[in-house]
Design a protein around this nucleic acid. Structure first.
Lengths: 326, 326
DNA sequence: GATTGATGTGTAACCGGTTACACAATATGA
DNA sequence: TCATATTGTGTAACCGGTTACACATCAATC
């Protein structure tokens, strides 16, 4: 791989001139410019980004910290972030924390040491650490962080309300919410919104882990202990598990039991019957987070600190058609 | 952020000594060592990895190029690669090509310019480009590349055979394979293996795109034109679509129709009924690819060039229990 | 003809680590 | 006692870009 000095030699100019041509900065004569361009082509010269980073203190790297890319909520988010980053000439570094505080800290340290230009974090350690003290710009995604850190979430409270209203409107009378880990604020909001509207129709409110196996257990527990005809699951994976357990037990969906999920991941349309769900605009959330981050990186001030996007219900087949409530 | 020279000043030694302490290289007196360590702690000094990269020509970065992280096959792969990379002190840069030649080339150029230490590629442009000419070590995952590039795949031919054998053993008599895009060698192998064993029981062999919507169309086409009681889908997403279409049409699974998928992604267990499938060891494949790459990066020669892992059938509920075939 | 400003170019320092090399000081062995 | 390791440390060059600054040249203006 050739260097700028070699290019300079071939083009018979100084390195400064080569640099000027490359960055289109400062005065360069037409003659010098073509000579340099010619030399660059001849040597297949591409500037060393590491060297450039060192001087400019800008690496063109964005760190994306997620709990686990394997959780089907995150690939779409990651994709959105990567697309937006790519459009602006950034690359993204993927980090999985498994929700472990220590891994998260390790990654942040590494990323800082390699001078990433910014960080997008979806994390739980909302309060503990010193995000505000970090020198790099940060945007929080799907989780709300303390302080002056911009965040992007969707309106979970409204989502919960919409879910309850939808079930009620479609003839469900005994409602259950299978919530996620209640230490997560975003999850609590969904549940609270649901319970607010469900009111006296609420039969039970139980908790489930996010992963499928755990949700299977929660669903079994639910059916063992309660009777209901409308379930709101805190995410689509839990909803899928609930559907599976219901199918095993011969409970007809949506006739005997209606189920509504949350998230709007692709999984929802792949299962049978296809899942009615409260869809977050996942891709847009990732996109917005990346956009905000890039704006901060480029020094623009950001207006609102907290961005909350709307959710919408996607009606599929785990709920009854309107007018057929029976 | 403090620099090595500041540390040197505080510890009252030269930068060389600080560097020696940090890298545990060369002679350092106990006295100097403790002074340096003390200074490092005092200043919360962390070496600038960019500067280190520049000199060492080693960035600690691995590029992972996938078609689309949103395709449920890839998150597990990415996770495995990232885990292994992290264990060895590397970070991974995620790139989505959408199977577009041009995006792939762009990414490779960028990654080269930022001096990634290695590349893991899952790509289709098996023949076209100049992978062999690249200076960075490469490992191909799930796709076979020409030349001396190490590859990691699973035994698709055997997988196809196993699928056919399994359906036959469980009482299916009229078999169909819904294959993926036949330009992909890995996909062709699955189909060929299946057809080899299916023999005269093969009723039809059709092609489907990989994404769910397209697969829905293919499944509808299939049911409109053929009668069969055993289907092999080239991946689990296609299988899920087939199940959904079958459910819509009131075809009982597995009683009237048995379905077997391919891949072994989590989706398979989340759908109803849970999917019998030929599972690739996805995580292990990613892990192995990363391991091989890291070995190459560290200069070790690699024995075998092509690694083919075994697949196994995971029996769930879209196929009949043995002994209950009819 | 002198002053001013725009244009064009090169030298060398700088970013922050790493390390070859020179030079000491001390220890070992004959 | 003198030659030879062994141990310990600092200076300065280097990695490959970027850019402040000095210096030229040339046209326009007074």
């Amino acid at each position: 791989m050739s260097t700028i000095r070699e290019v300079a030699k071939v083009a018979n100019v100084s390195v400064a001139t080569v640099s000027r041509v490359m960055n289109e900065k400062g005065y360069v004569s037409e003659k010098a410019r073509t000579a340099v361009l010619q030399a660059i082509k001849q040597l297949d010269y591409r500037p060393n980004r590491v060297a450039r980073s060192l001087f400019q203190k800008r690496s063109g790297l964005i760190g994306l910290i997620v709990p686990d890319i394997t959780n089907p909520f995150f690939p779409q988010l990651a994709r959105a972030v990567e697309d937006m980053a790519h459009q602006h000439g950034f690359q993204v570094i993927l980090c999985n924390t498994d929700e472990q505080f220590q891994k998260e800290q390790e990654y942040i340290q590494s990323l800082e040491a390699m001078h990433v230009d910014g960080l997008i974090i979806t994390t739980n350690y909302s309060n503990n650490p010193n995000y505000e003290e970090l020198e790099v710009p940060i945007v929080a995604l799907d989780r709300v962080l303390q302080g002056a850190i911009p965040t992007v979430t969707s309106n979970g409270h409204d989502g919960g309300k919409k879910a309850a209203q939808f079930l009620l409107d479609h003839g469900a009378t005994e409602l259950v919410v299978i919530s996620g880990p209640s230490k997560l604020p975003t999850i609590r909001k969904r549940r609270d919104g649901f319970e607010e509207i469900a009111g006296k129709h609420l039969v039970a409110s139980i908790e489930s882990p996010f992963h499928f196996q755990g949700a299977l257990g929660a669903a079994n527990y639910l059916f063992d202990h309660y009777d209901c005809n409308g379930i709101f699951a805190a995410n689509d994976v839990i909803a899928a598990a609930t559907i599976q357990v219901a199918a095993e037990r011969g409970i007809a969906i949506p006739d005997q039991l209606q189920i509504i999920g949350y998230d709007g991941i692709e999984l929802g349309q792949m299962i049978s019957p296809p899942l009615t769900t409260i869809a977050q605009p996942i891709y847009q959330m990732g996109e917005l987070a990346a956009k905000l981050l890039i704006q901060r990186i480029e020094g623009k001030e950001i207006a609102a600190v907290h961005h909350e996007l709307m959710v919408e219900v996607i009606e599929r087949e785990t709920t009854k058609r309107k007018g057929e409530e029976s």
